[in-house]
């Protein structure tokens, strides 16, 4: 019988790491989300090869209310993933910045808010205006 490793999904979530652990988890989650959207996008572009009718019929997917809300989540995912990735690259190749992790995270959040909030506002108002 194999020995237990005290490792399960629940234990992953219950480890009390710091800000870096939280951001890493969010980075992974947004990465998977963006990847799923990319897969869907590749499939719909692929269908274009079977003629414009089929492609146009599939567009209902992106016009549905849940898909419009999903676009805001997509924006969140792409923006966060990109900015967090840039922060990690900067920290990885500038070890002297290790002590300034908190400041870099604050900077990341500020830039994220500046990009995400106005864009999300434009998307939501456009969606509600079309209803």
């Amino acid at each position: 019988m194999s020995r237990p490793t005290n490792l399960s999904l629940g234990r992953w979530f219950s480890y009390r790491g710091g800000t870096g652990y939280l951001l890493w988890a969010l980075h992974r989650a947004t990465g998977v989300g963006v990847l799923l959207f990319l897969a869907l996008h590749i499939v719909d572009i692929f269908l274009l090869g079977f003629g414009p009718e089929l492609f146009n019929e599939l567009l209902f997917l992106y016009k549905a209310p849940w898909a419009r809300v999903g676009e805001v989540f997509l924006l969140f995912g792409v923006t966060f993933h990109a900015l967090n990735g840039l922060r990690i690259i900067v920290q990885d190749f500038s070890p002297r910045l290790w002590a300034h992790q908190r400041r870099l995270v604050v900077l990341e959040i500020v830039v994220f808010v500046i990009i995400f909030l106005p864009a999300a506002w434009i998307m939501i108002t456009a969606f509600l205006g079309n209803e």
């Binding site: 480890y15 790491g17 710091g18 870096g20 652990y21 920290q91 990885d92």
Partner: peptide, 20 residues
């Protein structure tokens, strides 16, 4: 670059910096 190691180190070694 998650920093869990640096937080866990009982000798307060700057592990993430060392790896960097």
């Amino acid at each position: 670059t998650i920093y869990n190691c640096t937080r866990a180190c009982p000798k307060e070694i700057q592990i993430t910096k060392a790896i960097g």
